Simulated assay, not measured.
Amino acid sequence: MPTRFSYDDLKVATENFIKKLSEGGFGSIFEGFLEDGTKIAVKCLDGIGQVKKSFLAKVETIGSIHHVKLVQLIGFCAEKSHMLLVYELMSNGSLEK
């Protein structure tokens, strides 16, 4: 299972969600750093606060997948209405490239 982060931990890691990398239909993605210096991308999901059990099941499934062409899911936050996914940050361009 990926690491469970508190919302406050991710606020600190992203410096209060200040550097937005992108925005899509399911939420926004922000750049951040873990305490050990690991660069992360934090996806803040919109409108899924009522499906926590389903969210956690999906996190477990996604977290168990490892492939060279997929970014690694590092962790998540499921706290009150906050649903966030924490991925390794893909530097130097988009995932498509």
Results as ranks from 00 to 15, higher is better:
2 P>R: 04
2 P>H: 00
3 T>V: 11
3 T>D: 02
4 R>K: 11
5 F>P: 00
6 S>E: 02
6 S>I: 01
6 S>R: 04
6 S>F: 02
7 Y>E: 05
10 L>P: 02
10 L>D: 02
10 L>A: 07
12 V>K: 07
13 A>P: 00
14 T>I: 01
17 F>C: 05
17 F>W: 09
18 I>W: 08
20 K>D: 01
21 L>S: 09
21 L>T: 07
22 S>L: 02
25 G>V: 09
25 G>I: 04
26 F>S: 15
27 G>L: 11
31 E>Q: 13
31 E>S: 14
32 G>H: 05
32 G>K: 01
33 F>C: 08
35 E>I: 11
37 G>Q: 09
38 T>G: 04
38 T>E: 11
39 K>R: 15
39 K>G: 08
40 I>K: 05
40 I>F: 01
41 A>G: 11
42 V>L: 06
43 K>M: 11
43 K>P: 11
47 G>C: 06
48 I>F: 09
49 G>M: 02
49 G>S: 12
49 G>C: 09
49 G>V: 08
50 Q>H: 15
51 V>A: 14
52 K>W: 00
52 K>N: 12
54 S>F: 06
54 S>T: 09
60 E>Y: 00
60 E>N: 15
63 G>C: 05
64 S>G: 10
66 H>W: 04
67 H>A: 11
67 H>S: 12
67 H>L: 01
68 V>D: 07
68 V>Y: 10
68 V>E: 13
68 V>L: 14
69 K>P: 00
69 K>S: 14
69 K>V: 03
69 K>R: 15
71 V>T: 06
73 L>D: 05
74 I>S: 05
74 I>K: 09
77 C>H: 06
77 C>P: 07
78 A>I: 05
80 K>R: 13
82 H>M: 10
84 L>W: 01
84 L>D: 06
85 L>P: 01
87 Y>Q: 08
87 Y>I: 01
88 E>T: 14
89 L>A: 03
89 L>T: 04
90 M>F: 10
91 S>Y: 00
92 N>L: 07
92 N>K: 14
93 G>N: 02
94 S>P: 00
94 S>W: 07
94 S>F: 00
95 L>K: 10
96 E>H: 14
97 K>T: 04
97 K>D: 15
